[in-house]
């Protein structure tokens, strides 16, 4: 490969490939940065979850690590009062819009939201903001997959993977607060052209798309 780049993250010197994004360079070196929407193979990052904020020396304000390309000598800090505040607010906003039922959720213990809460000492239950419940129907029509849109954080990972590796039946529809992951004309999965390949459930970070237990 071409010449490696050396940079520091939280004072730790690390090396990365030219063109790498800060987020992946950090994660590869066991430095945790909260993230939900990022996909390493996708070279045009969505930058939609707004949780991977970091400080970079010389930048006036925090930036998203998933969109920043590593530069030689770059000095990245993953924590600062400004970063912590943005992550706290962004996370809290998401949690007002995520049905919280960890004890019965198949993603319990593997959920990215739980990890973020643990790593950053945040509460899963929103403290400042009221809940914004959507009360959408849960789709368990498919033989292998359950889709609970009330848990979806709209990261878009399932849509991307369904398009690139699956049957291309998942997509985003509508906009604003009503934006959601859905199928053509909002059909239940069993009535769509879903081939139940499960790749979506494999990439869902929060238990909105999960594999049905065969018990």
């Amino acid at each position: 490969m071409s010449q490696q780049i050396t940079l520091t993250i939280d004072g730790q010197e690390i090396t990365a490939q030219p063109g790498d994004k800060v987020l992946w360079a950090a994660l590869a070196n066991k430095i945790y940065i909260p993230h939900l929407c990022a996909i390493e193979e996708n070279h045009t990052p969505f930058a939609s979850c707004r949780l991977c904020f970091v400080e970079i020396k010389g930048y006036p304000s925090p930036v998203t690590a998933c969109t920043e390309t590593v530069q030689p000598g770059m000095a990245v800090t993953t924590r600062s009062p400004r970063v912590d505040r943005l992550v706290r607010t962004g996370f809290e906003m998401l949690m007002t819009n995520h049905r919280l039922e960890c004890n019965i959720c198949p993603a319990n213990h593997s959920c990215a939201l739980q990890r973020i809460a643990r790593e950053r000492g945040l509460s899963l239950k929103p403290k400042e903001l009221p809940l914004l419940e959507r009360n959408l129907p849960v789709d368990d029509s498919a033989p292998g997959i359950i889709y609970d849109p009330n848990k979806c954080v709209l990261c878009g990972r399932c849509v991307w993977v369904c398009k690139t590796r699956g049957a291309g039946i998942l997509g985003f529809a509508r906009r604003g607060f009503d934006r959601m992951v859905t199928t053509f004309r909002d059909a239940p999965l069993a009535e769509s052209n879903c081939n139940y390949c499960d790749v979506c459930a494999g990439v869902c970070p929060v238990g909105a798309l999960t594999i049905k237990c065969m018990s």
Partner: peptide, 21 residues
Amino acid sequence: TQKESCGKCTFCRLGTKHMLN
């Protein structure tokens, strides 16, 4: 703005909704 937000990013989609409420 809430009606016209594309809904992609967390702060705009949910943040403006909270402000509007």
